[in-house]
Simulated assay, not measured.
Amino acid sequence: MAKTIPTQIRIDSDTKKLSSELFARLGLDMSTAVNMFLSQCVLRNGLPFTVSMPEYNQETLEAMVEAKRIAHDPDVKGYTNMHDLMSALDA
């Protein structure tokens, strides 16, 4: 087996947390997952997935802006269970 060397990378803290949780569910640690990714890059002589910019129509973009506004508006009522939501809809 090839000699391993320590490597340091900078990762957004939320991305690291979410990816670490995902890898743990898959039985992997961060180091193994990164090694798998890099091995696939070498094997394929490029990224092992397609990289592209999503193309959204205007209606979808407007809905995304509205959803973000609603999510951050403290005056918008939120519900933590289906019973409360259904009661509010029936009212």
Rank of each mutant, 00 (worst) to 15 (best):
N81V: 01
T32R: 14
G46F: 04
V76D: 05
A91F: 00
S52I: 01
R25W: 03
E62S: 04
R44A: 15
R10M: 12
A91H: 07
T4L: 15
L43K: 15
F37Y: 13
T32G: 07
Y79C: 05
Y79T: 04
A91P: 00
T32P: 04
I5H: 13
L26C: 13
D84R: 01
P74C: 03
V42N: 05
L26M: 14
L18A: 07
I11A: 09
F37M: 08
A33H: 02
N57M: 09
R25V: 05
L47A: 05
T4D: 14
V76P: 00
K77I: 06
N57D: 15
L89M: 07
A67W: 11
M86N: 06
S13P: 12
T60A: 13
D90I: 05
D29K: 09
S52W: 03
Q40Y: 07
G27K: 04
S31N: 12
S13K: 14
L89G: 00
N81I: 03
A63V: 04
A2E: 07
R44P: 13
Q58M: 13
K17H: 10
V76G: 00
E59M: 08
H83A: 10
P48E: 04
T7C: 06
H83L: 04
A24R: 10
H72A: 12
L61T: 02
S19I: 11
Q40T: 05
E66N: 07
N35V: 00
L47Y: 12
A24D: 15
H83C: 01
R10K: 11
V76Y: 06
T4R: 14
K17A: 14
Q40C: 04
R25M: 11
G78C: 00
L18Y: 10
S13L: 09
A33S: 02
R44D: 15
I5L: 13
L28G: 03
D73G: 02
E62N: 09
K77W: 00
M82D: 02
P48Y: 08
L22H: 13
M36S: 11
M86Y: 05
I5E: 15
T50M: 03
I9E: 00
N45H: 06
D73C: 04
K77H: 08
A67I: 06
T32L: 08
